[in-house]
Design a protein around this nucleic acid. Structure first.
Length: 458
RNA sequence: GGUCCCAUCGUCCAGAGGUCUAGGACACAGCCCUUUCAAGGCUGCGACGCGGGUUCGAACCCCGCUGGGACCGCCA
């Protein structure tokens, strides 16, 4: 059974890059009839915040993603790393028993100057393995004296890692590229590298789909996985989404939180459809606004290897398409839900909404564009022919947009009025604006009485 | 600096040696439609980074260069 996971750290809000990683994991799992897990990687107690976790879940839900296991789903196995301390401790013991790790007493200062020296000499900065040669007795003595070491994985001599990436193909890391890395901090908590590998193993993750900034980590995690003799998951590193300045989409560089797009009125299906075009394209037959359809079209080997640039213009395009997709009927209902004053026009609202949504990509625009329905502008000048028009409108046999249009046209012709000379003052009076939906639709939506009232008949 | 990755219109994607005088979408420009602003329809603008190979033939394969990016934490 295919099983994927999205494992964000609750240290900030979900943004485009994270959402896209989550979506791809979701899509891949669903495309294979597998499971999608949500795990919270909060081993960094200092930076992790509970409120971010809640927001993460909220945003993910809003995007329409569902998971088969997650921190909000009751289970025997907690999916929050901060609650899995005992599990990591157990596996750390195994690592220790196997002699795969050693305690390191190096100070932060030494580590820093070590790095600086290496960098200055043009060497790759990495731990030099000094504490590896510490005798067990010495190590015990220092621990008993109160020193708190961190624990590093003892990389085999000449360790090099190779794996086959599902999107990037064969990858290899020459020996000597990485040094003995920390698996457990001196405060006893596991590092991401270790906790993540353990969890992926324990939860049966078959495919690790993540941003390609993690490629170097894979070599390290492979060292753990191989040392423990675990079955390796398939790794699929997807190109990171870049901001317009072509930098990593980070906290600082133009990474608008998903929450903000939501607040600005974007539709979740618009976000999903947009996200799906970043390094991937759904097949032509797929409905980009439907996650199931997207999933049916998804495949890892169709993911491009170059980094896409986040472009809000494109997002906006998908928003336009998505809102059209929703249709006048559904949108009219939402409009009323948000603004009760639209209620009186309920049964005539859909057509004008359908027309308007072509130019108004957001619900709030629709709201704005239609506010004339419940707010009259009585200060507009009335033309002498208006009461007569109102009278004819009142006698109209059937009240439909088509009938209204027919009457408007013939009335205009009979009076010898030119298009603009007729429509413009009418629009001003009826809506208080210079532009908007086609007048016949405006008239139809307002209704007989309201038209009569505004035209000065009553 | 080291390691790894990437390289098609301004942007997002197609393109898996001939069907490519490179296709679509967004943006932009023009035209049409039109009571208005839009939308829509049509047309246009616009790219295989450079240099070498391999091949009868290269956007697609190889090498080099250039450019861009990521990573090198007791962050994830």
């Amino acid at each position: 059974m295919i099983r994927t996971r999205f494992a964000p750290s609750p240290t900030g809000e979900l943004h485009i890059g994270g959402a896209r990683t989550a979506l791809f994991n979701y899509l891949f799992a669903r495309s294979a009839g597998g499971e999608f897990l949500l795990r919270i990687d909060d081993t960094d107690a200092e930076r992790s915040r509970k409120e971010y976790e809640a927001r993460l879940l909220n945003d993910l839900h809003w995007l329409g993603l569902t998971w088969d296991a997650g921190p909000d789903i009751p289970s025997d196995t907690p999916l929050r790393q901060s609650e899995r301390g005992e599990i990591y401790a157990q596996w750390m013991d195994r690592l220790r028993e196997a002699g795969a790790v050693y305690p390191c007493f190096c100070t932060e200062e030494r580590l820093t100057s070590l790095r600086e020296g290496q960098t200055a000499r043009g060497e790759p900065p990495r731990y030099d393995g000094r504490c590896r040669s510490l005798s067990p007795d010495e190590a015990r003595r220092r621990m008993e004296a109160g020193e708190r070491p961190c624990w590093r994985l003892a990389l085999p001599e000449g360790y090099s890692a190779a794996f086959n990436d599902a999107v990037r193909g064969p990858q290899s890391f020459p020996a000597g590229t990485i040094g003995d890395f920390v698996v457990q901090r001196s405060d006893g908590t596991p590092t991401y590298l270790f906790a993540s590998a353990v969890d992926d193993y324990l939860t049966g993750i078959t495919h690790v789909i993540r941003g390609d900034e993690h490629v170097p980590n894979t070599a390290r995690q492979l060292a753990i996985i191989d040392r423990m003799g675990w079955l390796r998951p398939v790794f699929a590193h997807i190109p990171m989404v870049l901001s317009a300045d072509r930098r990593k989409l980070g906290k600082r560089t133009g990474s608008t939180p998903i929450r903000e797009y939501r607040e600005r009125g974007f539709l979740p299906e618009a976000l999903d459809a947009y996200l799906a075009t970043l390094s991937w394209t759904p097949e032509a037959e797929a409905n980009p606004f439907d996650l199931a359809s997207l999933a049916a079209s998804f495949s890892l080997d169709k993911i491009a290897q170059s980094s896409p640039v986040h472009d809000e213009e494109h997002l906006l395009h998908w928003q336009r398409e998505a809102i059209k997709q929703r249709g006048g009927e559904a949108l009219a209902a939402e409009l009323i839900a948000g603004e009760p004053r639209f209620a009186p026009f309920e049964e005539r609202l859909a057509p004008i909404v359908a027309d308007l949504l072509e130019e108004a990509p957001f619900l709030r625009d629709l709201n704005e564009a239609l506010s004339f329905l419940w707010s009259r502008s009585d200060s507009e000048p009335r033309e002498p022919w208006m009461p007569q028009l109102a009278a004819e409108l009142a006698k109209l046999a059937s009240w439909t947009p088509e009938a209204a249009e027919g009457l408007l046209r013939s009335f205009m012709k009979e009076r010898g009025l030119k298009g603009r000379a007729f429509f413009h003052p009418l629009r001003r009076l009826l809506t208080g604006r210079d532009s908007g939906a086609p007048l016949p639709l405006v008239v139809f939506t307002l209704g007989r009485e309201e038209c009569a009232a505004r035209l000065g008949l009553l």
